[in-house]
């Protein structure tokens, strides 16, 4: 049986996007394979690790647990929107300066969760940063330097 297509219209990183997608397509795959926005990573596929984090209507979500059709009418922001070309924003720069990155797989999600933490808490203490990073797993760094970077970026804003 043919898998019917559905027309979706949404805004991604400020640009209007229209596409015809099957209802079985995950939003993460739509971003990575149809739009070549590969900043969001596909790791666990089950909402556990946060590597696929994006902003949807101003809130961080796991794009592996959302269907592309559900995003119809919404506004998305991915990690690609934070830096304009090679100009990193201050959160991204802080991750560089604090050596917060090893393999890098978790980092797009970490940076976006960092942005959400600043949005929610302004200048949070380290416990708050740790608590609100619990949806992002890093297998390399031990988190310390990631927390350092977010704390610094929050202080600077």
């Amino acid at each position: 049986m043919a898998n019917p297509l559905f027309r979706i219209s949404l805004t991604i990183n400020g640009q209007p996007v229209q596409a015809d997608v099957p209802a079985t397509l995950r939003l993460l795959d739509f971003l990575r394979y149809d739009l070549d926005l590969t900043g969001a990573k596909d790791v666990c596929g089950e909402g556990e690790c946060g590597a696929c984090t994006i902003f949807m209507d101003g809130k961080t979500v796991n794009s592996c647990l959302i269907l592309a059709v559900e995003a119809d009418g919404s506004e998305l922001m991915t990690i690609e929107d934070l830096s304009h070309g090679k100009m990193l924003n201050e959160m991204q720069q802080a991750f560089v300066d604090y050596h917060s990155v090893q393999c890098g797989y978790c980092i797009p999600g970490m940076v976006l969760s960092g942005e959400q933490i600043i949005k929610d808490h302004g200048k949070p203490d380290r416990d708050t940063i740790r608590e609100d990073l619990s949806g992002n797993i890093c297998r390399c760094t031990g988190y310390q330097k990631i927390v350092d970077a977010i704390e610094f970026a929050a202080d600077k804003r």
Binding site: G47, G50, M56, T60, V61, N62, S113, G135, N136
Partner: peptide
Amino acid sequence: FAGVQIRHR
């Protein structure tokens, strides 16, 4: 409950 991203959905 879970983490921020899950709680948002």
